[in-house]
C-alpha cells in the first residue's frame, strides 16, 4: 500500500485516496475555440511514461483535496507531492 503525503493532512495510507491519472493534461479553456485534434488529445491522450509520472490523487477519505504526486511508475517510489496549484518539476 502506497504511503502518500497529503500536503494538507500529512502522510496517509493509499486507501484514503482515489486516483486521478495524468496531472499534466490541461483542459482547453472554457468558451474558447479549440481544434478537434486538440480536444481529442485532451480527452483521450495520456502521458504514461515508465519512470517519473506526475499524477492526480484525491484525498477522498480525508480533506477531499485533489493533489499532485510525482511517482516512479516502475518502482512506485514517490518523490514529491504538492497542492494542485503548486508546480512539480
Amino acid at each position: 500500500m502506497l504511503y502518500i503525503k497529503c500536503p494538507y493532512c500529512g502522510l496517509r495510507a493509499q486507501k484514503e485516496f482515489s486516483y486521478g491519472g495524468d496531472a499534466t493534461v490541461k483542459r482547453p479553456n472554457i468558451n474558447e475555440e479549440v481544434s478537434s485534434e486538440d480536444w481529442d488529445n485532451f480527452v483521450y491522450m495520456r502521458k504514461s511514461p515508465r519512470g517519473k509520472h506526475i499524477e492526480l490523487w484525491q484525498h477522498i477519505a480525508g480533506c477531499r483535496q485533489w493533489i499532485k504526486v510525482q511517482r516512479d511508475t516502475a518502482t512506485h517510489e514517490i518523490f514529491q507531492t504538492a497542492k494542485v496549484t503548486e508546480e512539480i518539476r
Binding site: S18, G20, R27, I30, L56, Q58, I60, R64, Q65, W66, V84, T85
Partner: peptide, 13 residues
C-alpha cells in the same frame, strides 16, 4: 461530487 471537486480545484480554481 469528485467530478465537481476536480473542476473547482484543478480546472477552474
Amino acid at each position: 461530487l469528485s467530478h465537481l471537486e476536480y473542476y473547482l480545484q484543478i480546472v477552474w480554481p
